[in-house]
Structure formats: structure tokens, C-alpha cells
């Protein structure tokens, strides 16, 4: 049990005069308490106006990504006492427009995803009464690509995105490469073309922030390198 101070960045769009400010809350925290538990406790017992997204509580829905002591992570997967220290800062993820308190706009995230044709593209019809075959080795190429929960932690931490708000973002390239790597996909050219844009993958300067930020331990930078290789291969014929 320890008394922890939460320093939370706040913003209410219906009170723009006040702008952005920091508010402190104190809470007794026990072993096992996650940051999401703590935020809920504050919202339900101290201040109903404190606003953040949340849903599954178990690290799979991707709602509660935020910047915790300067690092992007899921609130539900963050043990408060493991952060160490008696003060914890909580901010909305950087780079996205703030909607309210810790809630950011998902629009840039969705725009990036939609741009890369985020679906399996096939021209040949599937077998009528069975699945397409895919060997375990072919399937293994999707590991580390398909697990993305679209929390947005990667793109929020990306300096290229900070500089160019139209940048599609590492999450979008991870998605694009997930299909290019799929033995069943017949639309590589379409996915690649979408990434080969003014705001596309050439803006990635392999800073690896996205890798560090991913709460699911995925590696968007590697996916981007693979996409670059594919594009170069194609250009060289």
C-alpha cells in the first residue's frame, strides 16, 4: 500500500479558455493495482469529469494507450507500483489532436490504415468447399505482424509523424506488410503502391521509437524495411 500522486494532463474542449492544465490526484494504491484501476477509482470516487478511453481491461482492445511517465503504454497493463516513485505523470498520447483529457482523436490512425488497402486482395476464387492451404511455415511469416491491436502507441511516438501529420504511420505499414507477407494475398502491388506515397514509408528514418512504444512487442520498423526492400526490388525489375 502506498499513497501515489497522479499528475494528469487535462483539457476540456467545452472550456477552451482554461486550455491545457495539470491536475493532481492522490490515491492509496495496493499491489496488483493497474493504472487503469487507479484512473477508474479516481473517476468514480473523486472526480467524474476525468476522461479517458477504456474497455477490455486485458490488453487486447487497444483503447487505453496513453503516455505514462513519458512512455506510451496501455494503462490496463501498467502496474502502478512497478513504475516506482510516488508521483506518476499521465498524458494523452503525443502527436494526435487531444479530444478531452487523455482522449485523443483516432482520425490519423484510421486514415493511415484505410490508405494501405488493409484487407486480403485475391483474384482467384477460393476453393468452394474448403480452406485455402497455407503451410505452417508460410503462416509463421505472419507472426509479429497480425497481433496489432491498433492502440496507436507506435505512431504517436514517431518523429516522422510529428513532422508530417499526413504521414501514414508505422501501424499502417505493419498492416500493409501483414498482407504482403501472406501467401494467400495477390495484391502486393496495390498495398505497396499505397505505401509508396509522399507521406509514405520513405519518411521513416529507422529511429525505432515505434518498436520501443509497442505494448505488444511488435516491430513496425522491420516491416517498413521489408516494404522498402520489396519496393526497391520491383523498381530494379
Amino acid at each position: 500500500m502506498a499513497m501515489i500522486t497522479f499528475r494528469i494532463n487535462r483539457f476540456n474542449p467545452d472550456d477552451e479558455r482554461r486550455g491545457h492544465y495539470v491536475q493532481e490526484y492522490q490515491l492509496d494504491v495496493q499491489k496488483g493495482t493497474t493504472l487503469l484501476d487507479a484512473l477508474n477509482e479516481i473517476k468514480w470516487k473523486q472526480d467524474g469529469t476525468l476522461t479517458f478511453r477504456r474497455s477490455c481491461r486485458s490488453g487486447i482492445c487497444g483503447s487505453c494507450a496513453m503516455t505514462i511517465n513519458g512512455v506510451n503504454n496501455l494503462a490496463c497493463e501498467t502496474q502502478v507500483l512497478r513504475l516506482g516513485g510516488s508521483t506518476i505523470t499521465v498524458e494523452p498520447m503525443r502527436g494526435y489532436p487531444v479530444v478531452k483529457d487523455l482522449v485523443v482523436s483516432l482520425d490519423p490512425l484510421v486514415r493511415g490504415i484505410l490508405a494501405v488497402k488493409p484487407y486480403l486482395i485475391t483474384h482467384s476464387a477460393p476453393p468452394s468447399d474448403q480452406e485455402r492451404l497455407q503451410s505452417p511455415e508460410e503462416r509463421a511469416r505472419l507472426d509479429g505482424l497480425y497481433e496489432c491491436i491498433l492502440c496507436g502507441a507506435c505512431t504517436s511516438s514517431c518523429p516522422s509523424f510529428w513532422a508530417d501529420k499526413e504521414y501514414l504511420g508505422p501501424h499502417a505499414f505493419l498492416k500493409a506488410y501483414r498482407f504482403i507477407a501472406d501467401s494467400r494475398d495477390e495484391g502486393s502491388a496495390a498495398h505497396l503502391e499505397a505505401c509508396d506515397d509522399r507521406h509514405g514509408l520513405w519518411r521513416c528514418h529507422t529511429i525505432f521509437n515505434c518498436v520501443e512504444a509497442c505494448p505488444k512487442d511488435l516491430n513496425p520498423t522491420k516491416a517498413i524495411s521489408e516494404l522498402k526492400k520489396e519496393l526497391v526490388k520491383r523498381r530494379l525489375g
Partner: peptide
């Protein structure tokens, strides 16, 4: 099987089936 046709990444048997 329709989910598979849509691109769902199911785990596979050695023969490549779901």
C-alpha cells in the same frame, strides 16, 4: 472457411489446413 477466405490468419496443420 469463409473467414479463412477473407484472410483470417488461422493456425495451420502440417498439411496446411486450419
Amino acid at each position: 472457411r469463409e473467414f479463412e477466405h477473407m484472410g483470417c490468419p488461422f493456425s495451420r496443420t502440417p498439411e496446411g489446413r486450419i
